[in-house]
């Protein structure tokens, strides 16, 4: 039982990062109908910004803040410089453009910075562990969970109560009809990229705090995780993305804990198989609505 609770806590912590990650990816999909595969590079940008900021002598916390802002700025630039010029060219073109952007950014990290991992030492306090009824809970796990939940809460509040949030919810349902009400598509899409970038930045800080390093391919796992969580939750559903993130995070932790040690290295593959089984039963995902083709 203690073992189970211990894993549940670890799973909730990891799952909360996945939830923020997936929500950021789902934001852009919801309004623009594209999967931004360069989303993972926003995590790397957060990491490199944190690396350079800490190298410059800034505190970890300030570096984290700057790192998150950098991801938001980078996300906005992706829209302005890459996706906006390609507007109206169709789903496949935008998808391939996002793949290309991802590769170009990884190339830049490799050539301009270094192909090797750069360390970002997290403060000692984060690795402290306190014991509670036989459970070992790290400060990092608690901080991660709290930061993620507060972010998700603020995001929900923004979407539900603000004028811009209402515009974005409407745009995600039916962009043309929303524009026919006088809502500027350019503004809504830019706002979606900004929010997507902020969420990527927050998830990025939590991710980098966990890994402690950044490499040119740091974004590979986060984008895969976010993509799986979004598909699991149901494409186009922000609630689904968050739930999908939690489910996938908890699943991964439990597989790591309970699989026979010989196959633990393949836990990620097992998690993906489990997701495939869910999607076989519910092709539209946990919260998705019946098949909806977005063009």
């Amino acid at each position: 039982m203690t073992q189970f609770l211990q894993q549940l806590i670890n799973g909730l912590s990891l799952g909360s990062i996945f939830a923020v990650l997936a929500l950021g990816l789902a934001m852009v999909y919801g309004t623009l109908g594209i999967l931004n595969f360069a989303y993972g590079e926003l995590i790397a940008i957060t990491g490199y910004t944190m690396y350079f900021a800490t190298q410059a002598g800034l505190s970890f916390w300030l570096s984290a803040l700057i790192g998150a802002v950098a991801a938001a700025v980078a996300s906005i630039l992706m829209q302005l410089l890459v996706f906006r010029p390609l507007q109206g060219t169709g789903f496949v073109t935008l998808l391939f453009a996002s793949f290309a952007l991802s590769q170009v950014l990884q190339g830049i990290f490799r050539q301009a910075i270094s192909p090797r991992a750069k360390g970002i030492p997290a403060p000692e306090v984060l690795s402290n562990v306190f014991e509670f009824g036989g459970l070992r809970i790290s400060v990092l796990n608690v901080v991660t969970f709290v930061v993620a939940m507060v972010s998700l809460g603020l995001f929900a509040l923004f979407m539900r109560t603000s004028r811009s949030g209402l515009q974005m919810r409407a745009a995600a349902l039916d962009l043309t009809t929303t524009r026919l009400q006088g809502v500027s598509a350019g503004r809504v899409i830019l706002l979606a990229f900004a929010l997507s970038g902020i969420l990527a930045g927050i998830a990025g800080v939590l991710w980098i705090s966990r890994t402690g390093t950044v490499t040119p391919t740091t974004g590979a796992t986060p984008i895969l995780v976010a993509f799986v969580a979004v598909v699991l939750g149901g494409l186009g559903s922000t609630v689904g993305a968050v739930v999908g993130g939690f489910v996938f995070g908890i699943l991964e932790v439990f597989l790591e804990a309970y699989l026979p040690s010989g196959v633990v290295p393949f836990q990620f593959a097992f998690a993906l198989i489990a997701v495939a089984v869910v999607l076989f039963a519910r092709p539209e995902g946990l919260f998705g609505k019946a098949v909806e083709v977005k063009v």
Binding site: L166, R169, A170, L173, T177, T178, L180, Q181, G182, A185
Partner: peptide, 29 residues
């Protein structure tokens, strides 16, 4: 959005209301 801001409104075929949003949210939009 430009024609809409110039004072034109289309009541579209099939109504195109925002089904998951509340009646009041539809009006706000």
């Amino acid at each position: 959005e430009k024609a809409a801001r110039a004072g034109l409104r289309l009541v579209p075929e099939g109504r195109r209301i925002f089904g998951p949003l509340t009646v009041e949210e539809n009006l706000r939009i």
